[in-house]
């Protein structure tokens, strides 16, 4: 039974990977994704200003972008 576990696991992972390969759209299905507001960096100035506020007021920074460096704005 224990020997079967890696096989089952490998089967599950491979089916998940095949599932991933099915994700996505055809080039002609990008009408909604191509909108400006769907860009991950839409409203870049708002995001940059927010990052600066929270960097100055909280102990965690980064995630969306690089965490390091910055300013002494504390």
């Amino acid at each position: 039974m224990l020997k079967k576990a890696p096989v089952i696991l490998a089967f599950l992972i491979s089916t998940q990977l095949v599932g991933c390969a099915n994700l996505g759209v055809q080039p002609w299905e990008r009408d909604l994704l191509a909108k400006d507001e769907m860009a991950l960096d839409a409203e870049g100035n708002d995001l940059g200003l927010d990052d600066h506020i929270y960097f100055s007021k909280e102990a965690t920074s980064g995630g969306r972008a690089f965490a390091g460096g910055g300013c002494g704005c504390n």
């Binding site: 996505g24 299905e29 994704l33 460096g69």
Partner: peptide
């Protein structure tokens, strides 16, 4: 001195959804 490393994956899920 600060060294930052960032690894990312962006995936389009379907016609309406994308993830990072």
């Amino acid at each position: 001195t600060t060294v930052d490393l960032m690894l990312g994956v962006t995936q389009i899920i379907n016609r309406r959804m994308l993830m990072q």
